[in-house]
Design a protein around this nucleic acid. Structure first.
Lengths: 305, 305
DNA sequence: CTGAAAGCGCTAACAA
DNA sequence: TTGTTAGCGCTTTCAG
C-alpha cells in the first residue's frame, strides 16, 4: 500500500470516526485478548489494590480486563462466570475458593487458566495464590494473648469466607489458651468501614461489654473502634488494646499507630496476572499449582499497653 | 418444542458446559447490552460508590457494565473511548469534562447517549450531571475565613481537574477577602491517602510553615493531617482548624469530627444510569441536558476552634 | 504483495 | 409453531 493511500485512509478513519467492531474480530479470530476477573466487591481497598496490580500487568501485555463483582454471593458469582465464559475470556482470575458446584464445573470444563486468589484451597481448580486466613487470625490472636490479655473479643461487620476463617483462627487460639471467646458482630451483615467500627464498639460499650483487647477483621473497623474509644475516654493502648488486619495505608500513621497483619494483595494480583500470561504464552492450561504468599504480624502502639 | 426435548437440551447444555458466544450474538443482533464507564482510578472510594450505584441500576436492567480506568490521563481516556466504541457499547458514562479533541469527536459522532459526570461543563457533549467543584472550594474556604482565620492553606496530593477547580475556588475566596494564598502540595503527584495527608502536614510543619487553618482536597488527607497534628502535640481545632472534602464515611465519627463538603457521588451514578436507561428506552440520543446535583457544607468539630 | 472468498456462531426474517 | 437461510464485520486462507 502506498504511503499516500495509507495517509488518506487514516484521514478517512479519523473523519468518519471509524472504530473496528471487536465482536466481529473476536468471532473471526477466536481470540478475545480478554481476561475475566471476579471480585466480591469494589468497595474495598483490598480489591482496589489487587485490581490495580492485575491491570498494570495485563493491560501492558495487550489484554483487556473485564471486572465483574459478585457482591459476595455465590450465585451471582456463578452468573459472572457464565458471563465471562460467554465473552470467551482467555483466563479467569477469581477471588476466593468457595464456589457453587456448577461454577466449579464450568471453570474446570472451560479448559482455560483459572486462578483462585486470597485463600489457600485444599482442592484448587487450577492455579491458587493466597494465604492462610485462619493462620493469620490465629497469629493475631496469639499476639494479644502473649501480651497477657484474657478477655479478647473478635469484631466484624460480616462473615464472608475470609472473615470466617480469621474468626476460626481466633477461636482456635483462644481454645488453645483455654480462654473464652467473645464476639462483637454486626446484627446484620455490613461492609467494613470506620463508621461501622465506631458503631460496633459503641454498641459493645453500652452493653457494658468491653474486653481488654479486640481483634478487628479489618483496619477500618479498628480505626473506628479506636476513635470511639477516644470519644468515650478509653485510652488505647492503656485501657484497651486493638489489632486490625491488612495493614491498610493509614495503620502506620494514625495515632496511636495500629497493630495489624500485613497482607499482600498487590503481590497477589501481580503474580496472578503473571501466571496467567505465562500460561497463555505456553498455550496450554497450566498444571495445578499453589502459592502461599504469607502474611506478617506488625505490632505497633495500639497493642503495646 | 416438547417438554422432554427441552429437558434433554438443558441436560446437554449443563453436561457440555455450553455457554453462548456473546461475540456472535452481538454481531448478529447488533445489540450489545453493554454500557461503557470510564473513571480515572479505582483507588478512590468516591468512584467505588459511584460505580456501585451505576452497577445497581444497570445490572438490574439487564445491562453489562464495562469499566475502564484512564489513570487520570487524557490520552488513556481516548484509548478507553476507542476500546468502548469498538465494543459497541450502547452508551458511555465518563467522569470529567476534559477530553482530547479526538475523544470529543468520537463521542459526538458515535451518536449514542454520553453522560459526563462530577463536573459542570460549559459545553456538554450530551448529558452532564455534576456540581461546581470551584464553588464548593470557594464555600469551604469562606467557611474558614468566616471563622476568622487569615493564614489558610490548601493541601493536596495532585491537581487533577477537579482538585484544580477546588483550588481555583480557594484562590478566589482568598482573593475576595484580600488574603494571601498558601499551598501544601506534594512534590510529585500522589493519590490522596491518610498517609499522604500525614506526610504533607509533617513536611509543612518541619518547614515552620503551619497555617491557622487548612482546606484539604479530600477527607483522607484531612484525617492524615489531623493524626499528624496529634503526634506533634498540635490540637485540632484549638491550635489549627481543618476542613476536608467529600464527607467520607469516617468524617462524622472520627474524633474530633471532621468538617467537610458533602458531595453526591451515589446520586450522580444513580442518575447517570437512569438517564442512560431512559435514553436507550426512547431509542434516540437524548437532547443536551445539564443537572447540578450541588453539595453541602458540613461544619463539625475540626473547624470549631 | 494484493485481492477474493469462506466462515466464525449467532439472530432475525421469512417460509412452510 | 418449526425449520431454513442470509448476513452481521471481521480474520484467515488461498489464489492470483
Amino acid at each position: 500500500m502506498s504511503e499516500g493511500l495509507r495517509l488518506r485512509v487514516h484521514a478517512a478513519v479519523n473523519e468518519l470516526g471509524y472504530v473496528p467492531n471487536v465482536a466481529a474480530s473476536r468471532l473471526a479470530s477466536s481470540r478475545t485478548h480478554t481476561i475475566g476477573v471476579i471480585v466480591p466487591t469494589l468497595y474495598n481497598v483490598i480489591f482496589a489494590e489487587y485490581l490495580f496490580a492485575l491491570h498494570e500487568v495485563l493491560i501492558d501485555a495487550g489484554f483487556q480486563v473485564l471486572v465483574v463483582n459478585s457482591r459476595y454471593s455465590e450465585i451471582e458469582e456463578e452468573n459472572a462466570i457464565k458471563a465471562l465464559l460467554g465473552q470467551r475470556v482467555e483466563a479467569i482470575i477469581i477471588a476466593g475458593i468457595h464456589h457453587t458446584a456448577l461454577s466449579r464445573q464450568l471453570l474446570t470444563q472451560a479448559n482455560l487458566p483459572v486462578v483462585e486468589t486470597f485463600e489457600l484451597s485444599d482442592d484448587p481448580i487450577n492455579l491458587n495464590i493466597g494465604m492462610s486466613q485462619e493462620h493469620a487470625g490465629y497469629v493475631a490472636t496469639r499476639h494479644l494473648i502473649e501480651r497477657g490479655f484474657r478477655r479478647i473479643a473478635f469484631l466484624t461487620g460480616n462473615l464472608d469466607h475470609r472473615a470466617q476463617s480469621r474468626f476460626d483462627g481466633y477461636h482456635k487460639a483462644m481454645r488453645d489458651a483455654d480462654l473464652p471467646s467473645a464476639e462483637i458482630i454486626a446484627p446484620k451483615p455490613r461492609h467494613s468501614s470506620v463508621a461501622l467500627g465506631s458503631e460496633l464498639f459503641a454498641m459493645a460499650h453500652e452493653c457494658g461489654n468491653v474486653p481488654e483487647a479486640i481483634f478487628c477483621t479489618d483496619d477500618s473497623l479498628a480505626l473506628g473502634a479506636m476513635q470511639e474509644c477516644r470519644k468515650r475516654g478509653i485510652r488505647v493502648p492503656d485501657d484497651i488494646s486493638i489489632i486490625g488486619f491488612h495493614d491498610l495505608e493509614f495503620a502506620a500513621c494514625v495515632s496511636p499507630s495500629l497493630s495489624s497483619i500485613a497482607t499482600r494483595r498487590y503481590e497477589t494480583g501481580k503474580l496472578a496476572a503473571e501466571k496467567v500470561l505465562a500460561a497463555l504464552e505456553a498455550g496450554a492450561k497450566p498444571d495445578m499449582e499453589q502459592t502461599d504468599l504469607g502474611f506478617a504480624l506488625l505490632p505497633r502502639e495500639s497493642t503495646s499497653g
